[in-house]
Design a protein around this nucleic acid. Structure first.
Lengths: 189, 189
DNA sequence: AGGGCCATGTAATAGGTTACATGATTGC
DNA sequence: GCAATCATGTAACCTATTACATGGCCCT
């Protein structure tokens, strides 16, 4: 169960409430792990019961009170143990590839809009990652201070996201060319 | 629910039993979609009940009888409908990235073995994909016959897998360089 | 004799999604 | 007045994983 571990890492980077975690899972750490707020609340409660997390009630004015979670000793130990265990190299789960193969039995031309839409999303994500890289790692402000190990590691993960988006965009272009070529060779089916 | 759709595509490409599907999901279509035999049997049963699939009992000698599934009209209609619906561009779920960020709070050097192990797996997969490409698409035998739309689409999906593995290997090299640099700057922690 | 492949399944559990529910504050 | 943001949660359902179970054939 790696959601627990992703939460531990995120809370070590910075303590926060369930709500804040849910927002981080839409950005930053969410680039390579997704979770909804319902799931996060459920897991936080379980982890708290298991003693992995410490909670602090934070009264706020003008806003609902929040529970700020931070990692307790057993949580850190659980993370450390997981870090030293080997994990399975993950396999993709790529719906769009299923669609592309399925299009052979239907209408390949119908793929075009869908693939272009996906390309746009990945293109936006790439721009977003690059902006984050400039802000946090390669820009003048970030370059002023020497990066610590944590920042170096966050940066290499971000570079992975950037490489993934670039590769995906290039592949979607390949798909578009292929589909157009199919359409051209048989104008109507 | 895309497992149903992946099964429909696979059975349209070639009818087969639950066992055979499970094997295909370890190879070929499994490169971008995974499923275990338990799950496949359950979904096949549900799809059969829903009338999406036709079954044929095939007696065999020296082996247990098998049930050969093929796609029935309603199954084809369900697939067609899905193909015309937009789907969400998927987000990654990358355990290793969580580990890398987590290593900042533990021992970054412990990543090295793990990353090298993953690199090996991806390198093997790449070799496997390239061999498949040569056999089915770019080799002398395959080049002799003009490819149809189905083959072109299968090929472009395979090219996506190849691009993914290449990108991943390059990124894992980047991770290794980064971790080694961290270790060099502070020999013991 | 033992291991691996073919072939099918059940049961229990864990993980994840969708819908529903509440309620105050801030900004347009 | 309406929508968005902050903040927390429950309930129902669907999906996926892990463990267990059976049994014959083929090869070494």
């Amino acid at each position: 169960m790696a959601l627990e571990h992703a939460i531990l890492v995120s809370l070590l980077e910075k303590p926060g409430s369930g709500y804040e975690l849910a927002r981080r899972f839409e950005r930053s750490i969410g680039y390579f792990w997704t979770a909804t707020h319902q799931q996060i609340y459920r897991v936080l409660k379980r982890m708290e019961t298991a003693g992995m997390l410490a909670v602090r009630e934070v009264p706020q004015q003008g806003r609902p009170d929040k529970k700020e979670y931070s990692v307790a000793g057993p949580g850190r130990a659980a993370l450390s143990q997981w870090l030293h265990e080997p994990i399975e190299p993950e396999s993709l789960r790529h719906d769009l590839a299923v669609k592309i193969r399925g299009a052979a039995f239907d209408d390949p031309a119908a793929l075009i809009d869908e693939v272009e839409r996906h390309r746009q999303v990945h293109s936006d994500r790439l721009a977003h990652y690059l902006a984050g890289e400039l802000r946090d790692f390669t820009g003048p402000e970030a370059a002023a201070a020497p990066p610590d190990a944590g920042q170096e590691l966050q940066h290499v993960v971000l570079r992975g996201g950037i490489a993934y988006e670039r590769m995906t965009i290039a592949w979607l272009d390949d798909v578009l060319v292929t589909v157009h070529r199919l359409g051209a060779s048989r104008p109507r089916t």
